[in-house]
Design a protein around this nucleic acid. Sequence first.
DNA 1: AGTTAACCGAGACGGTACGTCGAGTCTTCCT
DNA 2: AGGAAGACTCGACGTACCGTCTCGGTTAACT
Lengths: 209, 209, 209, 209
Amino acid sequence: MAQNPASTRPDASRRSERSRRAIYEAALALVGEVGYPRTTVEGIAARAGVGKQTIYRWWSSKADVLLEAFLDLSAQAAEQAADGGAEYAIPDTGDLAADLKAVLRATVDELHDPRFEAPARALAAEGVVNEQLGREFVATLLAPQLQLYVRRLRAAQDAGQVRPDVDPRIALELFVSPLAQRWLQRTGPITHAYTDTLVDYALGGLAPR
Amino acid sequence: MAQNPASTRPDASRRSERSRRAIYEAALALVGEVGYPRTTVEGIAARAGVGKQTIYRWWSSKADVLLEAFLDLSAQAAEQAADGGAEYAIPDTGDLAADLKAVLRATVDELHDPRFEAPARALAAEGVVNEQLGREFVATLLAPQLQLYVRRLRAAQDAGQVRPDVDPRIALELFVSPLAQRWLQRTGPITHAYTDTLVDYALGGLAPR
Amino acid sequence: MAQNPASTRPDASRRSERSRRAIYEAALALVGEVGYPRTTVEGIAARAGVGKQTIYRWWSSKADVLLEAFLDLSAQAAEQAADGGAEYAIPDTGDLAADLKAVLRATVDELHDPRFEAPARALAAEGVVNEQLGREFVATLLAPQLQLYVRRLRAAQDAGQVRPDVDPRIALELFVSPLAQRWLQRTGPITHAYTDTLVDYALGGLAPR
Amino acid sequence: MAQNPASTRPDASRRSERSRRAIYEAALALVGEVGYPRTTVEGIAARAGVGKQTIYRWWSSKADVLLEAFLDLSAQAAEQAADGGAEYAIPDTGDLAADLKAVLRATVDELHDPRFEAPARALAAEGVVNEQLGREFVATLLAPQLQLYVRRLRAAQDAGQVRPDVDPRIALELFVSPLAQRWLQRTGPITHAYTDTLVDYALGGLAPR
DNA sequence: AGTTAACCGAGACGGTACGTCGAGTCTTCCT
DNA sequence: AGGAAGACTCGACGTACCGTCTCGGTTAACT
C-alpha cells in the first residue's frame, strides 16, 4: 500500500522479512493493548526491536503499517479458515435466508473477537477521516467481502427467490449496513438474533402482504 | 459533556460567553480547513484569541470541544429550520414511503453540505475509537434523530401500513444504516435515487410476492 | 549570546532561573564526564530535568549553551577570586619579569584544573572551526585577559623597562601564545619552569648582547 | 594511521588505489564546501562513488580519513615545491632574522590558501578535543616543521648569533606560536609585517639594551 | 583455466540524536 | 476569579548519520 513516490525507493528484494513480521505483530499487539491513538511509531519500532527508519522506509504512517498488518492478519485467518482450499464464498444451500443468517452470525462472532476488534476499529476510524486510507481499506477488505453477497444474491435471483429487478449491490446493504453501523457507532447490541431479524426484514419487507 | 472531575471545578457563572463562542467558531473553522488531526488545541486557542487554559478549564480534550461546537452548530441549524418553532418530527402525509424518501433526501443534502461534512466526519471517526465520546455523540445527536423514525414507523403500524410484529428500532436501520455506511466508509455514491431505492426495498422486501 | 533572530522571540522576563542554572551545571558536568562530542542537547536536558525545548528556546546550539555556561563559571570564579573587591589586573610590583611569571604560573595552574579543562578545550575547538562562536569566545573571554597584559606592559614602558617602540599587543604574544599553543595542540609540557623561561626569553631576546 | 585492531585486518595489497584517491578528494572537497561538522562519512562515500564499508575498512573515523587526506595533500604540495628534490630546510644565508622572516612569510601565505584553510582548521579543531588525533596531527605535520626551526636555530647558535644557553625548542615558539594562535583563534590579523615584527621582538627582546 | 577468497559498490539494518510540534500544567499579570 | 499570554516538562514526530551487516559483482592469486 501507499508507497513513497519515486524519489529513491528502497530495494524491496533486500527487505528483511524478519523485521516485517515483527513490525506487524508489534503494531497489532500495541493497538490491542493501549489503543490506536497511544500506539506510536516509536513504540512499534521499540517493541519490534527495529529501527524507526525501517518503518519509515517501507510505510508512510502508522495507519499504513496497521492497514498492512491487519491485511496480513486477515489473509492468515482466511488461509486458516479455508485450510489452503482457497474457495471463498457464501454457501448456497438453496435457502437464501438460512445462508445469509449463517454468514452474518459468523461475522458477528468475528466482530466480537478481540484480536480483530481493536485494529479493525482503528482502521475504520482512520478511514472515516483519511480518505486515501479509507478507500484502500474499503477496496482491499470491505469490497471483496461485499462482492460475495452480490454473487449469492445473483444466484438467488436466478433461482427466482429474489425479484429480478433488485440491484444486489444495494440489496445487500439492507442487512450488512445495519450491522456495520451498530458496530462502528455502537448504536445497538450485536447478536445472532439481531442479524437473523435483519435478514427476515430485508428479504420479506416491512409492509404487510 | 465530560467535565473535569471534582477537584476545583470552575465557576460557570463567571464564564466568558465571548470566549466560548470564539472557541466554537475557531474549532469548526479549523477542522474544516486543515482537518481534524491537524487541528490542535493550541491552534484553536490562537485563532479564538484565547489562552490555552481557558480551553482546558472548560473542556477535557479537543474532541470534547468539537463535540460541543458541533452540537451548538446543529442546534442553531435546527432552530433556523424550525424557525423558532419546536416540533421536530418526520412529516406524516399518510404515505410512508413518500415521507421517508423526503426526509432521507434532506439528509443526503445535509451530508453534502461542507459546513457539516468535516466536523461530522471527525466526530464520527473519533467516536469509533473513543468509546466515551462515541456514546456521547450517539446519545446527543444520533439517537434523537433515530427516535423520529421510530415514531413515524409506529404511526405507520397503527395505520396498518407496516406489519405489527416489526420492531421499528430495527426496521429503521434498513434504510438509515446503508446511507450511514456509504457516508462513513465511502462504499458507494450517495444520491436521492439511492435513498429512494432503499426505502422501496426496505418497505417491499426483496423476495417476489 | 547568539539569539534566535526576530521571529517570535521568547519573553526573557519570564525565564526560569532555576532551569538556566540547572542547564549550565548539566552542560559543564557532561562535558567534563563524557567529553564534548558525546555531550548531547538531549543529555543536558535530561540531566538538568528540563525539556529539550527549554534549551532550544534560549540557545541555538550546544556550543552556545556551553559558551554561556563557561562564561558563567568564569564570572563566578572571578568574583570568588576578587571576593567582591572587583580589582582585576596584573600586579605591578615594579619587577615586570616577576609579575609576568607570577600571572603565567597561575594560568598554568588553571589550565591544569579539570573543572576548566574540558569545557575550555571544547569551546576552543569549536571556535577554531565555527567562526561566529570563535569570535564570541575571543571577545568575551580571551580579549579581556589579553588587555590586562597590554596595560601592564604599558606601565612597564612608562617605567622605562620596555622599549617604547614596542607594540604591547604584539609583545604579549611572545609569552602568552606559546603557552596557548602547547595547551591547545599539546606540542609540549606546560610547567612553571616553562613559562618562566618564556618570560626570560621574551624580555631579554635571544640574541647575545 | 589508526588501524583497525587485529581481528581480520584487510589485505592492503588488494586495496583499490582508485577508491583511496577518490575518498581523499571527496573528503577534502566536502570539508571545503560544507565545513567539517557537516561532512559525513556517508557523504564522502557517495561523492567518491564508494561503499561506506570501503571507508570503514581502511579508516576508523572521518577525522582519520581527513587526516590522511590532508597528509597526502601536504605531501603532494611539498613534492611540487621541492620539485622531486628532497632537501627540506629553512635556508641559511647567514642572516637569521632574514631567513626566519622569509619562512614565516611563506607560512602566512599558506595559511591564507583556501585549499589548506578548511581541512587544516578542521583537523586542528578535532585535535584540540580528540587527544589521539591531536597527537597524530602534531607528530606527523607540526613536529617535523618545528624541527626545521630547531635546526636553523642551532646553526645560529654555532655561528654565535643566538645565546648558547637558549633552548631552541622553546625559542622557536616565540615567533611560531603567536602566528599559530592568531590563526587558530582569530585573535588578530595575519600579515607579513606582523611576522616580521615577531622575529624582531623575539630575537632582540623587549627590554631596552 | 577454474576455483576461490577478498575487495568492491550498494544499501538495508538497529540505533542515537537531532530540532520541531503539540499536549497539558503552571505562573504572571491584567480586567 | 476568569482570562490572555506564554514558559514549562514531557513525549512523539520524521530525518540524518552512525557503524555493522549482507548482497551480488568483479578481480587477483592459487590451485
